[in-house]
């Protein structure tokens, strides 16, 4: 795995390099500033597979660097792990909004670094699989035998506004009790995802997910929202607790967006996706033990549909 590590402290970079080496990561390039990092990225013959960025750096900080990196086509979905001191934890929120995948804290802990890099490696492998998949879709789709796991979260190619599910979970885990209380989540479930999955080949299924994701992203254009695909035909959206999204209006917008692709679905002999929007689940200060529970609950409510609505109204994370 090709790694770029950025920090303005050369001693920290040496330390990080040594620790990464001890975990078997030998292909590590270092940069002492955001400018140097951007120059390295621009001139790299092969793109990097993972970026480790210190948040607190002079001139251009790690969050700004993360934003700039995400604007580069080759790095839209590359895992980016932010490095922060405890005092910089308040910037982690901004880092996730800028597209970070995860973060680790200074001083480095061997086990923590190992765990984070293990996660990055899994993401990297998944990306490699997706890259192979995209190549196959582009060239030999009729020969394609690429298998995707229906239940697993995935990064949907070509949809920029979607964040990895793992990043969304990591984001929730960084929130303190107060900030967890300020957010809400709702899910958008493709009612007939499983029948579509059973009928379609992998490429057509992923294309269909991309259509729905684009329609959702368009519908949420004016909102501060984080969108992710959780697997099983379920999208989750993280919003402010006080958001003013009208589910009916959003549903209509998604429906209209998806309807544009109907001729393709007909040609592929798969049903047009039907979406169901679940009620907003709000974070609760009384259940901070597992912040990611809010996502499971949002999905559960969306899947349950109108019949479960009455019972789901009082449900909070």
């Amino acid at each position: 795995m090709k790694i770029l590590a950025v920090d303005d402290d050369p001693v920290f970079l040496e330390l990080l390099l040594e620790m990464l080496r001890s975990h078997g990561h030998d292909d590590v390039t270092t940069a002492g500033s955001a400018r140097e990092a951007l120059a390295i990225l621009a001139s790299a013959a092969q793109p990097f597979d993972c970026l480790l960025l210190d948040i607190q750096m002079p001139e251009i900080d790690g969050v700004q660097l993360c934003l700039s990196v995400r604007e580069l086509e080759a790095y839209r979905h590359t895992p980016i792990v932010m490095i922060t001191a405890m005092s910089g934890k308040s910037f982690v929120d901004d880092a996730f909004a800028a597209g970070a995948t995860d973060y680790i804290t200074k001083p480095l802990d061997r086990l923590e670094l190992k765990a984070r890099m293990g996660m990055v490696l899994r993401l990297h492998d998944e990306r490699q699989r997706m890259a192979v998949f995209q190549r196959q879709v582009g060239t030999l789709s009729y020969l394609m035998d690429f298998q995707i796991d229906f239940a697993a979260p995935m990064v949907i190619p070509g949809v920029d506004r979607i964040v990895e599910y793992l990043a969304l979970e990591n984001y929730l885990l960084t929130l303190g009790v107060k900030r967890l209380y300020a957010i809400g989540a709702f899910a958008i479930s493709i009612e007939n995802a499983e029948p579509i999955f059973n009928k379609a080949d992998s490429a057509a299924f992923v294309d269909m997910l991309g259509d729905v994701a684009t329609a959702i992203a368009d519908g949420l254009k004016t909102e501060q929202a984080m969108l992710s695909y959780a697997g099983g035909g379920n999208f989750v959206v993280l919003v402010q607790r006080t958001c003013s999204i009208d589910p009916e209006e959003l549903g209509l917008m998604i429906e209209r967006g998806v309807a544009e692709f109907e001729p393709i679905y007909t040609a592929d002999r798969i049903p047009t996706p039907r979406v169901r929007i679940g009620e907003l689940v709000r974070g609760s200060i009384f259940a901070p033990a597992r912040p990611t529970r809010i996502l499971d609950q949002a999905i559960e409510i969306a899947q349950r549909g109108p019949h479960g609505k009455a019972g789901s109204r009082n449900l909070v994370a």
Binding site: D9, V11, F12, P107
Partner: peptide
């Protein structure tokens, strides 16, 4: 910040 980032390790 520089000291706290590495001293313990």
């Amino acid at each position: 910040h520089k000291i706290s980032g590495v001293a313990a390790t």
